[in-house]
Design a protein around this nucleic acid. Sequence first.
DNA 1: CTGAAAGCGCTTACAG
DNA 2: CTGAAAGCGCTTACAG
Lengths: 343, 343
Amino acid sequence: MARVTIKDIARTARVTPTTVSNVINGRHARVSKKTIQHVRQVVAHLGYTPNQTARSLVSSVSKLVGVLIPFTEDRNKLLLDNPFYGEMVSGIESSLRANGYHMMLAGIDEGNIDLAPFLQWNVDALIVLGVYQDLLYSSVRSLDLPTLLIDSYVRDDHFFNLRLDDKLAAHQATTHLIDNGHRRISFVAGAIREDGVIARRHEGYRAALSERGIAYDPDLVFTGSVSFDYGKKVASAIASDPSITAAFCAADLIATGLMSGLQMEGRRIPEDISVMGFDNISIGKMLYPALTTVDQGILARGESAGSLITSALAGQAVPKDMRTPTTIIERASVATIGNARRG
Amino acid sequence: MARVTIKDIARTARVTPTTVSNVINGRHARVSKKTIQHVRQVVAHLGYTPNQTARSLVSSVSKLVGVLIPFTEDRNKLLLDNPFYGEMVSGIESSLRANGYHMMLAGIDEGNIDLAPFLQWNVDALIVLGVYQDLLYSSVRSLDLPTLLIDSYVRDDHFFNLRLDDKLAAHQATTHLIDNGHRRISFVAGAIREDGVIARRHEGYRAALSERGIAYDPDLVFTGSVSFDYGKKVASAIASDPSITAAFCAADLIATGLMSGLQMEGRRIPEDISVMGFDNISIGKMLYPALTTVDQGILARGESAGSLITSALAGQAVPKDMRTPTTIIERASVATIGNARRG
DNA sequence: CTGAAAGCGCTTACAG
DNA sequence: CTGAAAGCGCTTACAG
């Protein structure tokens, strides 16, 4: 049995497709109450689902928003197995759906920017996660669609931005460590990029140090990639300097690797060394000891992203820049040492 | 500047839209070499991307495959923050894309089966992850689309199936524990459902026990949900029975919770108790000690799912039932005790 | 309040 | 080998 169309409804309701379209789309001013009732009954009875493909073609609104996330480095897989992206995408999808939209996911790597799927499907708007080279931004921009950048510091009025107060958050995290008696505090992070969050978190770390009269020591700073393996790799360097009593990692994934590496070297956490993370991905609470970290409310941010872009699409006034708050989650990976005062 | 269409190409190439369509779609038998060349040049020059929405409408193939994953229990979020689903979806997406398809993601919970997005977008096929009630299967079936079920044991010729040999895998895992000298082995899992994988893994566990002359003790079996919290909850029960020297968890997420709970009770892993998982999600290697587990090659399975459904769509003969192999990954959470022989 | 007509961007018989 | 025509399922002016 072929799928029921607007024509079928029209025929059995003895009206025209125009009228059916009007009641389906809630243009009630144009239809009598009686007709509305009747058409609705027929719709319910025949089990009609609008063909979005046809709608999209004629109205050029697809009710689709494209979401761009990075590919894995190696094999062109979506970075969805990274819990950060998994959770973020989950939040985006749910608020998109709540607002009558659907998500079209695509991956990018720096070398291969393929926006074709978005063009083919006529997406109404874009959300992009991650930081990229200029080429990506200019490509995206040329699509001329409402676009929301998450965690990017590129300056461009064309884009909406959803960010954290990264500098402040890192400042607070570092201060938390200092308040717990630590003075030799390592900073471990992904590569510092001008347009990225790490640069800001690094600034926050430095600011907190200097505020408390602690000299900045470049030897304590490690930057590589946002990955478990990198954290693990840094562990031996940190373990070999007993003066270091704490490490602030700019991503939980790094903190996880660092903890694992440190533990394999026989160091106890937090007795021998304290570790603090950033993000609050779900893994953190599964570790032993559980990770103390900066919560950025990933899921909620994803939802904000979805409703923000959706509001913009609905023509509502939406701020170009939105910041969401962070909080420190104290768990078990940070120890108080010396005669430190506790907050 | 409006988007370039097939008409634009036709006009500037001085041919008809029919001809343009023929060259774009590779129906070369119908067009002269010269025309092909020419049209291609114009296409490249004008920067044409086909409007999939129009294609889909007329040809009723959308090049979209719907992927159904469970919602979280609480709040209608996709279970993408669960690393198992994240990784699986990542694999599916990449092989779909490699075969010229795109993914449309939707969530389901038992109470609320909304297949409308798939209807609206005219998906060509379906992949469903997880086990559900009959209602879901009959709804999906009535869509009358090629459908692949992952990890389901419902019997229905309408569906393609992609499974593990769950019983065998659990048998091997349990035997591995026995080989390492363990005899009081706990089984911790999600709820046992007739159509699900847990029932098979439980069978494998029992079979391995009986094969080695170890009596099955129902008190050692814990079933709840596939979650970190459930594993953690079971920890105290297991810790309180010192005769238990090992636990086989039918999911890594459970094993993670169990380890954390056990460690909080002051038990050392694997010295005091061994823990074995199932799945090989990325978290396992991040734990300390790293989790010994059954690898099911999640990413590769996702890729298989994508290429299987894609082959079926291409009209190729595809087996109705496919099984992928598992292997045991030895890491650090299982100890050899007594005078056990090692494999 | 209701309907006839055109058209969105394509593909697909069919004719020549 | 090339083209004229119809039509996929809708929405949108426009007329009445």
